[in-house]
Amino acid sequence: MNLSQLKPGSKSRILKIGSVGPLKRRLMDMGVLVGEEIIVEKIAPMGDPIEIKIKNYKLSLRKKEAAEIEVEECV
């Protein structure tokens, strides 16, 4: 399962970051690391991008970017 498939309100943990290069580095710099917990907060009115909460702050990213982030849902 990847981050772009989750619904608002769902909580998950990062298993793997699939992409390489600038996207991966940027995600790492923003604290999107393996093992981190993510809450999907909102989806933009037009369906993309999405807003997540990570490390206690809010981050937005496009679904295409979120699709690179493999997660498992946690309860």
């Binding site: 996207l23 940027r26 991008p49 702050y57 809010k58 937005s60 990213l61 970017e65």
Partner: peptide, 8 residues
Amino acid sequence: SLFIMELP
């Protein structure tokens, strides 16, 4: 371009 952006 990327859209990894903080919502402050």
